[in-house]
Design a protein around this nucleic acid. Sequence first.
DNA 1: TACTATGCATCGTAATACGATGTATAGGGA
DNA 2: TCCCTATACATCGTATTACGATGCATAGTA
Lengths: 107, 107
Amino acid sequence: MNAETLKGHLELLLLAAIQAGPAHGYAIAERLHAKSNGLFDLPEGTLYPALHRLEHAALVTSRWSQVAGRRRRVYQLTPKGRRALTQHHGDWQEFARAVHGIVGDLA
Amino acid sequence: MNAETLKGHLELLLLAAIQAGPAHGYAIAERLHAKSNGLFDLPEGTLYPALHRLEHAALVTSRWSQVAGRRRRVYQLTPKGRRALTQHHGDWQEFARAVHGIVGDLA
DNA sequence: TACTATGCATCGTAATACGATGTATAGGGA
DNA sequence: TCCCTATACATCGTATTACGATGCATAGTA
C-alpha cells in the first residue's frame, strides 16, 4: 500500500479499533490487519507515535498491564475520543462520497 | 475539511479531473469543487505544485494557451497517466473497502 | 477607484508516516 | 545451546506533503 494513502485517516482507524474494546498497541495493529484483510500493517514507527498523539489529545487513556512477563500499555477511548470518532466517521463518509463522485465516472 | 484528509489522494483526484478532458489549473480546481459539492477547494499552494509533480512524473503534459489575454497552462493525461489513474482508482477502492470494514461497525 | 475573479507561480512551515534501530521476554526448532 | 520469530514497547531522523502567505498580471464590475 502506498505510504501516503493512510495519511489523515490513521486517527480514525485507531479510534475505531479501540472502540471495539480496550486493547494494547500490538493488538490494535492486529485488529486493523485482520479487518482490512491484510491491507493495513502498521509499522511501529507509525503505530506508537500515533497512539501517543491520541493520548496527548485526551482521546484515549492508557494503563500498564502485565501479561505473561510482557508489559502492555492498554488503551481505552475517552468520551472525547468517542466524540472524535463520530466526527471522524462523518468526515470520512463525506470525503469518500466526494471522491466517489469524482472517480465514480471511471467505474 | 481537515488539512490531512486529502493527503495521498490528491493525485487520484487530479488525474480523474484531467481525464474528464484537458484543462488548466483553475478549471481543474473548479471541476473538483463542483463534483464534490464544494468539499474540495484546492488552494494554489496545493494545486500548482501537485500539477508540477504530475508533469515531472510524466503522468500529464502541458501546453501554454492564451485566452482573453490570460495565459493558461493546459494539462492533458499521458498514456502513463491513464495507467496511473487506473492503478490509483483500484488502490482507492481497496483502501475505501478496508476502511469501511473497520469503521462500518459503527454505522 | 477598488474589489473580485481569473490564472500562474514559489517559498517556508508544520505535520505526518515510516524505516531503522534499540530493548526485553517467551517459545520453538535446529 | 543457539538462533530465530513473535510479542511488545519506544524514539530518532528523513522524506513527503498540503497549504498559508505572498507576489505578479489581466479582465470585468461596482
